[in-house]
Amino acid sequence: MISVKELTKKYSRNLAVDHISFEVQKGEIVGFLGPNGAGKTTTMRMLTCFLPPSAGTASVAGFDILEQPLEVKRRIGYLPETPPLYPEMDTESYLAFVARLKGVSKSDLPKRVKYVCERCSIGDVRHKLLGKLSKGYRQRVGLAQAIIHNPDVLILDEPTAGLDPKQINETRDLIRSLAGDHTIVLSTHILPEVEQTCQKVVIINKGKLVATDTVQNLQSRARGAEIMQVEVAGRNGNLEAAAVKSRLERITGVSRVSLKQSLDSRGVFEIEGQKGFVRGDLARAVVESGWDLNELRPTAMSLEEIFLQLTQQAAPPAAEALAAQGKQS
């Protein structure tokens, strides 16, 4: 549905987007991830034909953004970082105006306005001035204008920025419910958002593509090892941490043990287990040595850690290798 080839944007001095290539299949939700200033907005603006690329190109729904911008624009619904609302218009006439702009015919217009109002639950502010709406409603009206012409592709620039937690959840649900009908690209710097809403992630940093893969693949690839947090307590009121550590290290599959926190009779350890590590072994080893096992908790590597790992990698070859891997998978 979207195919980006070597897309580059150069401002007078700096490279905002540096030869980015990726593909998005029909019906997918893709999270566009990166720290602030990574080039997410610039890339999206190029996809929506708002900015022309300095080099490279992209095609949306089979139309090239440089050759046939009008056709591309017809097929894209776009929610910029700040929803493009006219404060002096009311919701309904604004949606009607956008619908006309996007080429919705006069006969379909009332139907479409009604549909997006229901879909984005903004029916109760239909006759309110946009300038008087709360942030959450503004964002939803922004989403409503993006889907008003039933576009093939939705491009959402930080759709949940500035919302409260409840609104964030509602917006995410809304976005998820829109998938299938539409191919969605959304940018964010909030990681749980990607884990919750997206099937695929494109990570960029400083204008460069760092990785592109499914959320699961990224997690399992970056994890490699299983990390456990274990709390052990001594029976008689004190615990010799060193003894516990050396015992834990002898369990098959454990590659590293570190003491995270030590209290009088308790110690919290972090254990890294490689292939062949069995949790039951650990539990048995602790109990059989006469200690109590208070807690045994796997700490899955969150996308957050993967992200930090990927974006902080100083050595570019590693990042490129990862990116290449991502392309294959």
């Binding site: 603006r45 929506t48 034909c49 708002f50 009008l70 056709e71 624009k73 017809r74 894209i76 776009y78 910029p80 970082e81 700040t82 493009p84 609302l85 006219y86 404060p87 956008v98 702009l101 996007k102 080429g103 204008q145």
Partner: peptide, 14 residues
Amino acid sequence: RSGTIELLTTSPLR
């Protein structure tokens, strides 16, 4: 200033 120009220029208009 308000960013609505982005709406106009990303709509299928010349």
